[in-house]
Amino acid sequence: MQNTQGTLDYAFFIDPSRCIGCEACVNACAECETHRGHTMIHLEFLDREHTIATVPTVCMHCHRPTCAEVCPADAIKQTEDGIVQSSLKPRCIACSNCVLACPFGVPKMKSDLEQMMKCDMCYDRTSAGKRPMCATVCPSQALAYVPMDTILRMRPEKPTNVFFFGNEHVTTKVFMMAPREVDAINVDITDFMWESQS
């Protein structure tokens, strides 16, 4: 776990195993002042035929955001607090590079607005000391915005913010809850293959 924060600072945690697929987050997201009427959350029903499992995805706010690095118009900015903002409307050329490059599949191209928009962790709220809308309303607390200390005390899982996508190593501001014995999350099958380990 790469934790750059104090344990009493508020942080954002995602625990898909708690998600009940109710879409309170999806609906609440559209109530945020910075993008009212547009929801930025992805709520996936993994495979409804086979399971009730659902997964909510907000922007992970990468420490080195791939979306910003691939943006040819330099339209995606990271503020000092580590929040990766939606594209700047005057700069965004709606090319969708960021949409394709994001390892988590977060940015949304709003073709009606010709602008990429994404979760900015409710910048209007968090920058004013309020909690993000989605994590405030989430009735299962699959999305939680609480001090690190609270999560470590209350949850059996462990927060991690280190991800491997093949050779791509990503660390993020947002934490994913993982089993206690896991330090980083691998999402490439080759990491689990005997050939790769030998």
């Binding site: 109710c22 309170a24 609906n27 109530e31 009735p139």
Partner: peptide
């Protein structure tokens, strides 16, 4: 503070 989608809307 928690709500379901019905509460939100």
């Amino acid at each position: 503070g928690m709500l379901c989608p019905k509460g939100v809307k």
